[in-house]
Design a protein around this nucleic acid. Structure first.
Length: 585
RNA sequence: GCGCCCGUAGCUCAACCGGAUAGAGCAUCGGCCUUCUAAGCCGAGGGUUACAGGUUCAAGUCCUGUCGGGCGCGCCA
C-alpha cells in the first residue's frame, strides 16, 4: 500500500504532466510545514515553472485544475509564490485509519521492490568485554535491521566480530598457563572478567620476553590451523561470546549465533583477495608491503595514500578482511545494499575499501555500499565517556546502573506496585531510556551521555512514549468487559471525529510508514524517534481534551478506536527501534 | 599539510537531499488534578542559524573563503 505522500505525489505528478506535457517531473510533496497550509504541500511546481519559463502561480493553478482529487483530496489551493496546499478528506482518512486498525501490519509490509540488505553491526572485539563504545553501533544497527525487515526486505544480519589477529596469541598463551597451573575454579574466575584477563595477559606480554615470544608464535600457529592452539582459541572465543550474548539479552538486541560472521571466517579468502587485486593491476609494493594506491586518496604532503593489504611479514590487515567481506556480501549473498554500521572514525578506511572493491570488481555498481557512521559517546567533560578512574565503562555495568536508577524513580512515582513489578518496569524503562536517548540523536555527531537528562524522563524520551502507551492500556482495562490493545473489538470500520485534536492525531497515525521509509532510505533512526515524539504529543493532547470513557456511546467507540490505533502505532514504532512497551508503569 | 564530521535559544538537540513565520525538551515565569495514570496538559519570554561573500523566485541547508571544535591520515582493528 502506498503511503499518503506517495499517493499524492502520483496524483500531482499526473496533473503536472497534463499541464506541461512533461512526464518526468518531481512534484516534491511533503507534509505541510504549518497546519493552515493543509495536510500536505507540493513544492515542485515552482522549479518546473522556472524550467518552462512560465509564471509559477499560473502553472500551479493549471496543475490544480487538472488534479484528480478522487476521494482522497478535499481541496487544493495555490499559495504563496506557487505552492500547492493539499487538504485531505475526512472520509478517506477515517477509512484508511479503520483499515489500519483492522490489520496493523498492512501499512508497512509489501515493499515495492524487496531488496537483499546486509547489515553489519555491533561487531565487538572478542579480546575484551563489550563497553560503551559498542552501544551505538549495536542499537542503531539493530533498529535499521528491524526497519528493513518490516518493509519486506530480506535482511541478513552480520556480526563481524573481531576474533582474529595478534592479540589472540597473547590471550591463548595466558590461558594455557592458567590451565596448567591453576584449578578450574580459578580459571573460571579469571575468565569471568575479560577486562582483567586481557590486562593480565598484556602485562605479561610487556614484562616477560619469553611470554611475548610464545604469544607471537601462537598467532602464527593459530593461522596455520594448529589444533592445540585452535582448541584454546575456541575456548576463549566461546567465553567471550557468552559475555556478548548476555549484553544482547539485556539490550533486547536480536543478534544470535546464526548472525556471527567473524573475521576469522574470511581467513582462507585473504590470499585470493590479494591475488585478485594483483590480477586487476591494483597492487603495488611499497616499503615491502603490498598496497593499493588510488588517485583520489592523497596522504601527507600530497603523497599517494596507500591501503595496505599485506604486511611486509606476509600478514594481512583489516582492509584485506573487509575486502573479502565486501566480496562475499556482494557476490555470494548477492546483496543490493550493504550497511556498515561502524564508528565515524573509520570513514576513510571504508571510503578506501569501497573504492577498491569497485575497481577490483568485488562489488558491482548496482550494489550499494554504505558506511552508516556514528559519533562518539562523550562524558560531561566533553571527552569520551569513562569511569571516574578513567577506565572504559562496561556495557553490562552501564545497563545495570540504568535499571537501578530507574528503579529508584519507579518506586518514587509508583510505591503501590509490588517489588517484582517495579523491578520489571525499571529494567525496561532504564534500558529503553539509554537506547532511546541514543537513537533519538542524529548519529553523525558525538553526543554527551547524561544520566539526569535521560532519566528525567521528560521530552523526547522513551518514558514519555511508554507512559502514553500505558495510559491507553489503563483505559482499556477500565472498560466493563476489560480489554487490551490486541483483543478489543471496537466494531468500528471507519473512524470519524469532531475535535481538531482527533483529526490531527489520526493523520499522524497514518504517517508511520512515511517515517519508517525515510529511516530505511537514509539510515537515520532519529527520524522515527521524532515521529513517535510528535505522535505521543498529539496523543497526550487528545487525551487531555477528549475524554473517552465519559463520552456518549457513539463518541466513546470512536475515541476508543483512536486510542487503540495510537497504542498499536506507538508499540509498532518502538518495536522497530528495539524498545518494548509496558502495560503499566 | 591534506581529508572527513560539526558549529542553530542560557543548556541538550531537531529541521523529511533548496521551500512559506527555524522547531522541541531542559532551565525560568504563570496557569490546570473531587473526572480515563500530573512520568501529563495549556500559556509566556528567549534566535543576525560562528563570520564574510556568492548562486536564485526562495539558503540553517548548495558553492568559495575565514574563524573555532572533534576525528582520521603505512604495516593495530
Amino acid at each position: 500500500m502506498p503511503t499518503i505522500r506517495q499517493a499524492l505525489e502520483s496524483r500531482v505528478s499526473q496533473a503536472i504532466t497534463a499541464a506541461t506535457g512533461i512526464a518526468d517531473n518531481a512534484p516534491n510533496v511533503i507534509q505541510a510545514s504549518r497546519p493552515d497550509f493543509g495536510d500536505y504541500q507540493a513544492n515542485g511546481v515552482m522549479a518546473m515553472a522556472k524550467q518552462a519559463r512560465s509564471n509559477p502561480r499560473e502553472l500551479a493553478q493549471q496543475v490544480v485544475d487538472r488534479l484528480d482529487r478522487g476521494d482522497l483530496i478535499d481541496r487544493a489551493e495555490v499559495a504563496g509564490p506557487g505552492f500547492i496546499n493539499l487538504f485531505l478528506t475526512d472520509r478517506w482518512l477515517g477509512e484508511a485509519a479503520g483499515r489500519t486498525l483492522a490489520d496493523p501490519t498492512s501499512s508497512l509490509e509489501a515493499a515495492v521492490d524487496p531488496q537483499t540488505v546486509v547489515v553489519d553491526y555491533s561487531s565487538p572485539n572478542l579480546a575484551k568485554e563489550m563497553h560503551v563504545g559498542h552501544l551505538r553501533g549495536t542499537i542503531i544497527g539493530d533498529a535499521l535491521a528491524r526497519v528493513m525487515q518490516a518493509l519486506g526486505h530480506r535482511v541478513i544480519r552480520q556480526n563481524h566480530v573481531g576474533d582474529w589477529g595478534t592479540q589472540f596469541g597473547m590471550l591463548i598463551a595466558h590461558l594455557e598457563d592458567l590451565r596448567q597451573a591453576d584449578s578450574d575454579a580459578e580459571l573460571s574466575t579469571e575468565l569471568s572478567d575479560l577486562e582483567t584477563f586481557y590486562r593480565h595477559a598484556k602485562q605479561r606480554f610487556d614484562a616477560e620476553p619469553e611470554f611475548a615470544d610464545r604469544a607471537r608464535h601462537y598467532v602464527v600457529r593459530l593461522q596455520q590451523g594448529d589444533e592445540q592452539c585452535l582448541a584454546m582459541w575456541e575456548q576463549f572465543i566461546e567465553e567471550s561470546l557468552r559475555h556478548c550474548e548476555a549484553v544482547y539479552e539485556m539490550l533486547g538486541v536480536l543478534l544470535t549465533r546464526d548472525d556471527l560472521k567473524a573475521e576469522s571466517s574470511y581467513n582462507n579468502d585473504l590470499n585470493e583477495v590479494v591475488k585478485a587485486l594483483n590480477e586487476k593491476n591494483l597492487l603495488r609494493e611499497s616499503q615491502g608491503a603490498q598496497c593499493v594506491f588510488l588517485d583520489e586518496f592523497v596522504g601527507k604532503d600530497g603523497t599517494p595514500l596507500p591501503a595496505i593489504v599485506q604486511k611486509r611479514d606476509g600478514g594481512f590487515l583489516y582492509a584485506t578482511t573487509d575486502l573479502a567481506a565486501a566480496r562475499y556480501r556482494c557476490q555470494t549473498l548477492r546483496a543490493d545494499r550493504v550497511l556498515y554500521v561502524v564508528d565515524a572514525r573509520q570513514s576513510l578506511h571504508f571510503q578506501q575499501v569501497f573504492a577498491i572493491a569497485r575497481r577490483a570488481g568485488f562489488a558491482p555498481d548496482n550494489c550499494s555500499l554504505e558506511h552508516i557512521a556514528y559519533g562518539t559517546m562523550m562524558g560531561k567533560d566533553g571527552k569520551p565517556f569513562k569511569t571516574r578512574s578513567g577506565d572504559t565503562v562496561k556495557l553490562k555495568d552501564l545497563l545495570e546502573e540504568a535499571s537501578e536508577r530507574a528503579y529508584r524513580l519507579v518506586s518514587d512515582k509508583n510505591a503501590d506496585l509490588d517489588e517484582a513489578e517495579r523491578r520489571n518496569i525499571a529494567r525496561t524503562v532504564g534500558v529503553s531510556a539509554v537506547k532511546y536517548y541514543d537513537l533519538a540523536r542524529n548519529r553523525n555527531s558525538d553526543y554527551v551521555f547524561d544520566w539526569s537528562a535521560m532519566l528525567s524522563f521528560e521530552g523526547n524520551t522513551a518514558p514519555y512514549m511508554l507512559y502514553a502507551y500505558a495510559r491507553i492500556c489503563s483505559i482499556l482495562r477500565k472498560l466493563d468487559e476489560g480489554g487490551t490493545v490486541d483483543t478489543l473489538d471496537d466494531g468500528v470500520a471507519a473512524l470519524d471525529w469532531e475535535a481538531p485534536e482527533e483529526r490531527a492525531l489520526v493523520l499522524k497515525l497514518l504517517q508511520l510508514p512515511e517515517a519508517v521509509q525515510q529511516v530505511a532510505q537514509e539510515g537515520y533512526p532519529n527520524h522515527l524517534c521524532q515521529y513517535l515524539f510528535e505522535l505521543a504529543g498529539l496523543f497526550m493532547r487528545f487525551y487531555e481534551s477528549c475524554p473517552i470513557l465519559k463520552a456518549d456511546a457513539g463518541r466513546r467507540q470512536q475515541r476508543l478506536a483512536i486510542a487503540r490505533l495510537s497504542a498499536q502505532t506507538i508499540r509498532k514504532g518502538l518495536e522497530l527501534l528495539g524498545i518494548p512497551t509496558l502495560e503499566r508503569m
